[in-house]
Amino acid sequence: MKKPFCGILLIVGVMPLSTLTADASQLACPDVVQAESIQFMKVKSEWAARAVGDFRLSSAGFNDGPPEKLAALKPSLVASRGKQSLETWVFDPSEFSGGLWLVCGYGGPAGQITLAKQLPSSYSVCSVRYTPSVKAGAQNIAITCR
């Protein structure tokens, strides 16, 4: 019984990496939220409000439902090497009553501004890779889901 199992491992071991990741989707958050796109709706009449500068992408993650639910999901695994980090989420799509949402944060680690969009319910694993950006307060972020 063990010999067929070892044969299967050998076959998987020699498969090209592109075969293993062929069904992966690359997702992307916009790199910047431009200052002129921001509107202030509830500012007292005696105050003038404006965004001083653009907001650069600083974080990405996943929510159970739209952002107003404040239901951020914690990564299943976090790994770091030097200045790079990788966060991985493992999902059971049947557990998301509000659907799975990608949330992009701008303006530092707290994500003072967020953009979000609903993702297909077929995703079961997503990873976010962070690398430092040359732009202050920003991160280069690569998002892969399958």
Rank of each mutant, 00 (worst) to 15 (best):
E36Q: 12
S97Q: 13
A142D: 15
T19M: 14
E46Y: 05
L27M: 06
V12R: 03
Y123S: 01
F62M: 04
T21G: 05
P30H: 06
I38A: 09
G65M: 02
Q26F: 07
A116D: 14
A71C: 11
S76F: 09
K44N: 13
L27Y: 06
Q34C: 01
A110L: 15
I11Y: 01
A60K: 05
K42R: 13
D64H: 02
E36M: 04
S97M: 07
G137F: 04
A24N: 14
A116E: 10
S94I: 06
P4V: 06
P109W: 01
V52C: 00
G13R: 03
A51P: 09
A48W: 03
L86M: 14
K3T: 15
V43I: 10
K117D: 07
K135Q: 13
K74Y: 03
S97K: 14
L17N: 05
N63M: 13
I143W: 02
A142L: 11
K44F: 08
L100F: 09
S76G: 13
D92T: 01
G107T: 07
R50N: 14
A110R: 09
D54F: 03
A116N: 08
D31W: 00
I113A: 12
V43P: 10
V43N: 03
Y106W: 08
R81F: 12
V32C: 02
V128H: 00
S122I: 10
Q39V: 12
Y123P: 03
A72V: 14
S18W: 08
A110D: 15
Q34K: 15
S37G: 12
L119F: 02
S59E: 13
D23Q: 13
S124G: 00
S58K: 04
F55N: 09
Q39A: 12
N63D: 14
C145W: 07
S121K: 09
K42G: 01
I8D: 02
G107F: 09
M41V: 12
L20T: 06
P4W: 09
V103C: 02
R56W: 09
A28N: 10
M15T: 06
S76H: 09
K135A: 10
W47V: 15
P132N: 05
Y106T: 09
S85E: 13
A110Y: 00
V78R: 10
K74C: 04
R146S: 11
G82M: 02
G7C: 06
W89S: 04
L86F: 01
S94E: 14
T131A: 12
D54I: 04
I113F: 15
P30Q: 14
S97V: 13
V33A: 10
I11C: 02
V128Y: 01
N140Y: 01
G111E: 09
